[in-house]
Structure formats: structure tokens, C-alpha cells
Design a protein around this nucleic acid. Sequence first.
DNA 1: GATAAATGCGACAGTCGCGTCGCAGAATAG
DNA 2: CTATTCTGCGACGCGACTGTCGCATTTATC
Lengths: 185, 185
Amino acid sequence: MTTDQTERGARARTRQAVLDAAAAVWARDFSASLSAIAERAEVSRSTLHRYFTDRQALIDALLVDSLARLDTLDDDVADAPAMDVLEYYLRAGVDMGDRVIFLFADPKRFEGNPNWSDDDGDEDMRALVDRARVEGAIADRIPTSWAITLFYAVLYTAAEVSNQDLPRHVAADLAVQSFRRSVAP
Amino acid sequence: MTTDQTERGARARTRQAVLDAAAAVWARDFSASLSAIAERAEVSRSTLHRYFTDRQALIDALLVDSLARLDTLDDDVADAPAMDVLEYYLRAGVDMGDRVIFLFADPKRFEGNPNWSDDDGDEDMRALVDRARVEGAIADRIPTSWAITLFYAVLYTAAEVSNQDLPRHVAADLAVQSFRRSVAP
DNA sequence: GATAAATGCGACAGTCGCGTCGCAGAATAG
DNA sequence: CTATTCTGCGACGCGACTGTCGCATTTATC
């Protein structure tokens, strides 16, 4: 029985295709229709509904899927200097591309969603930024809230730019550089 | 006959109310319905349609209105150092709040709109950034395209933050500071 | 080759936003 | 006060998106 986990084989493949399509399409226009996503996934609208009954169900699934990819990273870099961790997140985020754009395009898109721990991630970020401050990588004159907002803005921007103008790693380098210099003492 | 210009009196007032409401609502969710905007403007949907026949007509009107507010600035600061001009834009932009969020939330929202001179504004920005580079305020390692994208990102972020967390002028200061340091040699 | 799983197609009703009316009441100008 | 302008209300048809079916077809599993 492969019921609950990730469902092996063909089943898992189309599921992923739909999620990827949703990320790609919704990253650019969150009001895009399910037809548009099905088309992008090269799947009939019926099939899409077989995997995700609701529009909401697809949103939720994409949300947890995207967050899961972010969480994969956490463990490796736990005890590095805080600013290095932030840099790591930034680079990893840029690599995630559409998923990140989907996640951070609109701060209140997921308000009230049980899977969106508005506090959780934010609390971790605050702690990280505060640690970076103690370690001398962030100036005292920078409010924590601004550092966090700027972090997401830079991440989002780099992810977006690397879809068009600049190669991914160049965009990531620029993002890292810009953020470090913006908040440095 | 007050036909074409800005239409005096009550006429102009409701028109502005609708535009303001559209900016406020669409800044947060561009797929919001006209009903939502009418409600925000404290006006019936009928009245809204009397002023703007189309959804598109309202979008266009808000676009030109917002751009017009930006253009008001241009003349005063023509011969200042380029980076000071950019700073001026940044501060003025933050003050415009929702209008700026509406304008710059999605780079391709207005693609193909006759009022949106994708080249015009972009060309001016490129020239400004290049001048700032010559004047030594922007490092050579920073691609012009990144400087421009980052500028809008910081502007957008500051405008958004100043709606919630931080006082307007503080957000503006932080934005200016962050941008200058990000691109400085 | 037979069985089961996955998919596509087309149709359906339901909902929502849109744009347009006409009419009646309120606000304003003269 | 009267005529004009501005506004709100409710209705209508239209189109798009949504969620759900049943049935036929392809694909894979054994």
C-alpha cells in the first residue's frame, strides 16, 4: 500500500507536474485559472481535479510542497554564523525559483491558512537576524523587521530576475552582496 | 464648459475617491472585483461604471493618474547628482504609497498598455543609473539591470512596510540607505 | 492477452463578475 | 422653488471559471 506518502510511479509524476505548473503559472498571475495550469502541465482539467479536488486544495498542496523544500535545508547549516545561514537561504531560495515567488509574492496570500505558520517562520527569521546582529553582521540602526522584509524582497527579486535577465548564479551573487552590504554596520 | 480637464466639484471628488479606492484595493490584490473597489470608495457599482465604463478604463485611468504624480517630480531635480535624484524618487515614491505598489507590483501588468512606456521610464532609469555610475555612486560590478530592479524592489518594499510596521519617513530612510549601500563601490 | 489504473473528452449546473438599463430619490445650481 | 445633476437600487443577459459526471481510450501491470 503506497496510499498516504508520496505515491509511487506515474501517480507521483503527474502530481508533481501539476504542482510545478501551478508554481510556474501562479508565480506570474495568481488569478490564473485552473485550465491554464492544466494546460501548462499538459494534463486535462479532469485529471487535475482528480489529484486536487479544489482550487484551494491545489493551493494548499503547493504551499506545503514549497515549504517542505525550504525545510529540507535547515539542518545542514545550523551552527554556521547567522549571516552565512541567511546567505545560504538566499542562494537556495533563488534556486527554487517559481516556488519562492509563489510563496513570497504577497505576504498575506496565505493568511489564515493552517499550513502557513506566519509566526513560525517569522520567529525563526527574527532569531536568525538577531543572532547575526550579535555576531556583528547587522548594524544596530537596522530594525529587525526591515532586515527581514528586505531579505524577502531581495530574494524575491533575484528569483524573478533569474527567470529572465541574468543567469541564476549571478542573480544569487548580486542578491547576497546587496543584502550583506545593506545591513552591514 | 469644464468638459475635458479634471472636471470641477463633486464630479472630480468621486472620481478621485474611486481612483484612490482602486489603488488601495488593487495594491493588495489586483484580481479584486469592481464591487470591492466601489465598496471601498463608498460608492455604488453603478456610479463607478458611470465614471469608468470598463475595468480596463479604470486601470488605464489609475495608471495615467499614478504616472502623472510621478512626473510632477521630474523637473525640480534635473541637474542634481544622479544618486540624489534616485534618492528623491525613492522618497517621493514611498510617499505615494499604494500608487507605487500598484504601479510596480508586477512588471508585466501593463505590458502593451499605450500609457505604459515600458521603454520610456526604463530608458530614463538606465540613463540615470549610468550617470550615477560615472559619478562614482554605483560600482562597476553592479549590472544596470540589477540596480534598476533592486531600486524598484526597495521602493516597493518601503511603500509596503510604511503601510504597517514602520513610519513613512523611517521606511524611506531605510530604503535610501539600503539602496545606496547595496550598489556603492 | 486480460485486468486494472490513469487519462482525455464532453456535458452539465452552479456561481461570480461584468456591463448595461431604467427608474426613483437626493443633492446641487440657478 | 425649479431644473439639472449626481447617485443608489435592482434587474437583466452574458461570459468565464468551477466542480462533478459518465463514458471511451490509452497505458501499465501481471
